[in-house]
């Protein structure tokens, strides 16, 4: 294992300081506005969850389709990088970079209401959720045929999963929705942020662990059709 693609993700991030600064500053500005604006905790947690999730999904899918359209994706695979390595390493590198870029925003969002242990736990949940969002970005990119479609599908996929994760609803503990929420990928991030803002604690939901482990396996199994589809993006 050479981790060429993951290393390249870091090199690319460092080579574009303006984009790096924007990726840090934009979430900080949005989080500051909500944090200082006195939004109710439930709404604030929902907005942060949406922001962080879309950051991961869009940040993964759009550059992938852009590179596929330019022919770079095809060149990398042709050069000898195994398809599944490419997709997994890219998501791993991308999620680590995204998590680092979102760290200041997360710190501001949770300032004053959290112990170090809880903050570390929140960081790990954030990172895991962005890992899922990045892997989802790969899948979305595979079905899109243009950058516009990519943006649309990324938003739809992320918002639907956020809805299933219970981000936009009042929790209904006794209903069948509770099972769906528990198995959905972004409930953990929402619950964690909500608990942190409330000054309480929460258990690690099953959904997060499930998606963190299963989605990479699905990606590896689907690597060939994903790759074929991304190549077709260039061929039109």
């Amino acid at each position: 294992m050479k981790f060429l693609v993951a290393a390249m993700e870091f090199r690319l991030a460092l080579a574009r300081p303006r984009l790096l600064a924007l990726n840090v500053m934009v979430p900080v500005v949005l989080v500051l506005a909500i944090s200082l604006g006195g939004a109710p905790v439930f709404h604030a947690a929902a907005v942060y969850t949406v922001l962080f999730t879309l950051f991961g999904t869009f940040g993964s899918s759009i550059p992938l389709v852009r590179d596929a359209e330019a022919g770079l994706f095809g060149r990398i695979i042709r050069a000898g990088v195994p398809r599944s390595h490419f997709l997994i390493e890219r998501a791993a590198g991308g999620s680590a970079i995204d998590a680092l870029q979102l760290l200041p925003a997360l710190t501001i969002a949770t300032l004053g209401s959290i112990s170090l242990n809880e903050w570390i736990r929140a960081v790990l949940v954030l990172w895991s959720s962005i890992w899922i969002a990045n892997l989802l970005g790969n899948l979305v990119a595979a079905v899109a045929r243009s950058l516009a479609e990519t943006a649309l599908f990324s938003a739809v996929a992320a918002l639907l999963l956020l809805h299933f994760s219970g981000v936009f609803r009042t929790p209904l503990p006794q209903s069948s929705w509770a099972v769906v929420e528990a198995l959905s990928p972004f409930q953990a991030l929402h619950e964690t942020l909500f608990a942190v803002l409330m000054g309480t604690s929460t258990e690690l939901p099953l959904g997060l662990v499930l998606w963190v482990l299963v989605l990479p396996v699905v990606t590896v199994l689907l690597a060939r059709p994903i790759t074929r589809s991304l190549r077709a993006t260039r061929d039109g």
Binding site: R16, A70, L72, R75
Partner: peptide, 13 residues
Amino acid sequence: GYAGEESAHFNSL
């Protein structure tokens, strides 16, 4: 080894 028509690279590197 293959060199085709597209010359896409990591442009910021």
